[in-house]
Amino acid sequence: MATPVMDKAEAEAARPADSPYITATFRIRRFNPEAAAESYWEDFRVEIDPKERVLDALHKIKWDLDGTLTFRRSCAHGICGSDAMRINGRNRLACKTLIKDIAPEKPITVEPIKGLTVQKDLIVDMEPFFQAYRDVMPFLVTHGNEPTRERLQSAEDRERFDDTTKCILCAACTSSCPVFWNDGQYFGPAAIVNAHRFIFDSRDEAGEQRLEILNDKDGVWRCRTTFNCTDACPRGIEVTKAIQEVKRALITRRF
């Protein structure tokens, strides 16, 4: 097996003066349950254009340096939400993070997202996350006969929940939430965002039921308004605001 660490002097000597490439160090949190009970850091030196993304560097490592590196990615263009990871201590999508934006002169740390069970390297068990999502009934509920055409809605009614329709279920918000880190029973920001998307939809009729679910002891009242989720969201959803709007709906319903 080739050593993953490139010789620095050799790498720099081979590069022409006007080359756009730099040598960046990726410090990746590895875990292989078939080999050891503990995870560990491994450094990879990669020659790469700083205008490329962290995902490109991970590909380079997996394809050229160490084929055992394990991570999720599907579309690689910020839509599928597969490759959320903790890069330099912040939750981001590897496919939307340019290397030049995250100080490549220093080692770039890449870890799995926190608060979910690590299965291998950067892959975590997403099942508890999706369970919370399923628990808020993320689907349209109506009664009576289905109309023969679209369910029409005014532009203002659509605008009401526009922000929360952008969610791609990458788990960057939920796995940045300190309450979720310590207690996975909390629904987490992503589930609340997806409940918000239907609670404030004028066509939906199960808003009351979803509010009741989120009134639970593991529901919106556990939110500590730390704004980690809003900072982490790669889609720019105002997550904390959505949670506060659900709280307000619960209070105005009550009083």
Binding site: F31, P33, E34, A35, A36, A37, E38, S39, G115, L116, T117, V118, Q119, D125, E127, P128, F129, Q131, A132, D135, W181, N182, D183, G184, Q185, I213, D216, K217, D218, G219
Partner: peptide, 26 residues
């Protein structure tokens, strides 16, 4: 401590606290 682990006898996964399951109360 890792000497005992192999593909047939994998180490325990790095568990998250109190994961949510279908049977979670609520």
């Amino acid at each position: 401590s890792s000497a005992a682990y192999s593909p047939d006898n994998p180490a325990p996964l790095i568990e998250a606290p109190r994961a949510r399951t279908p049977r979670t109360a609520g």
